[in-house]
């Protein structure tokens, strides 16, 4: 795109079409790889690392119910009545845990000496909400209420639709897979509570999440 200008000089314009093509290619790439599913994963959890666990098979068409199991405690910040969960502070270079913090729902951060909350409550993290054994408000149902509503949804979406009685009394099972993402430092009692609650609602298939084995690349 160039042409003569009355003054005698040459006006040159860069051709923007190739750069626009390339930018559209990049946009398409990022749009395709964007993963909304990671919103339901609580990335602050440290999962146990085991050798025999396998990644999810490609193209597996499983309906998943992701449950992030943690232990929470009252926020130690004065005047705050929210619940706090443990977060690891890792070194950016070595990826090793430097220290631990309690981070509450309102964002208060308090240093915590140990790697586990010893006497806390069982809680589920669902899209950033902390659900405990007892209901706190309409937006924070109890673990049982939450699982019941999820089970109702999968009862309706099953083909043919199931009723609650068929599941509870006749032992029919829900086809959904419950994904248990529990922190390494979580107590077994807490995870077992969640599993038992799921079994009460008719879930039978479980996937226990583990982290991937780190491949050591020299020293």
């Amino acid at each position: 795109m160039s042409g003569s200008v009355p003054g005698g000089g040459v006006k040159s314009e860069p051709n923007l079409t190739p750069i626009l093509d390339m930018v559209f290619q990049l946009i398409t790439f990022f749009m395709l790889v964007i993963n909304f599913k990671s919103a339901e994963l609580d990335l602050s959890l440290q999962l146990p690392v085991l050798g025999s666990a396998k990644p999810l098979p490609e193209g597996a068409n499983l309906k998943l119910l992701v449950l992030n199991v943690q232990i929470c405690t009252k926020c130690p910040h004065s005047g705050c009545d929210a619940f706090a969960t443990l977060r690891r502070v890792t070194d950016a270079d070595t990826k090793k845990v430097k220290s631990y913090q309690l981070v509450c729902e309102r964002g208060h951060e308090t240093d915590h000496p140990q790697g586990a909350i010893t006497n806390g409550k069982t809680c589920l993290t669902v899209y950033g909400r902390l659900l405990c054994k007892e209901s706190r408000s309409k937006d924070f149902p109890s673990i049982e209420e939450y699982l019941r509503s999820e089970a109702d949804l999968s009862l309706m979406s099953a083909t043919p639709p199931l009723t609650r009685d068929e599941v509870i009394k006749e032992g029919k099972e829900l086809m959904d897979t419950v994904v248990i993402r529990a922190d390494t430092g979580c107590r077994f009692g807490a995870v077992n509570f969640v599993i038992v609650e799921c079994q009460k609602q008719g879930y039978r298939r479980f996937a226990l999440k583990t982290g991937q084995v780190e491949i050591k690349t020299g020293s």
């Binding site: 990671s38 999962l47 085991l50 396998k54 990644p55 298939r205 996937a207 583990t210 991937q212």
Partner: peptide, 10 residues
């Protein structure tokens, strides 16, 4: 995140 799992029928 790279994650793996153990499938169990419980």
């Amino acid at each position: 995140p790279g994650e793996a799992q153990i499938f169990l029928k419980l």
